[in-house]
């Protein structure tokens, strides 16, 4: 799980071009949207594609994303429970 969280942080930084952010800047429970990392709806789409491409998880209901993408912690938990890739 710890490894997965680190991997997710690296992927988020790389895929969303968070140039000034390092892995150490993102705590496991930090909110990804709003006041936390400040991600927006386009980033949410990027994360949905990342789940599908890298972990084989298709979100049937995009509204699910709101809970899944709350933090790196929630993402890692969801991936661990649902991954096929």
């Amino acid at each position: 799980m710890t490894e997965l969280k680190l991997e997710l942080k690296e992927k988020i930084i790389e895929q969303l071009n968070l140039e000034d952010v390092s892995v150490d800047d993102i705590a496991d429970q930090d909110p990804l949207f709003g006041e936390g990392l400040g991600l927006d709806s386009i980033d949410a789409l990027e994360l949905i594609v990342m789940l599908d491409k890298d972990y084989g998880i298709k979100l049937a209901d995009p509204k699910e994303g709101r809970k899944i993408f709350e933090s790196v912690e929630t993402m890692a938990t969801y991936i661990t429970e649902n991954r096929s890739a």
């Binding site: 895929q15 071009n17 386009i42 789409l45 990027e46 594609v49 599908d52 491409k53």
Partner: peptide
């Protein structure tokens, strides 16, 4: 590379 799958919005925009 992705066989016409997994296209992300940023590059398209």
């Amino acid at each position: 590379d992705n066989n016409e799958q997994y296209l992300t919005p940023t590059r398209f925009i």
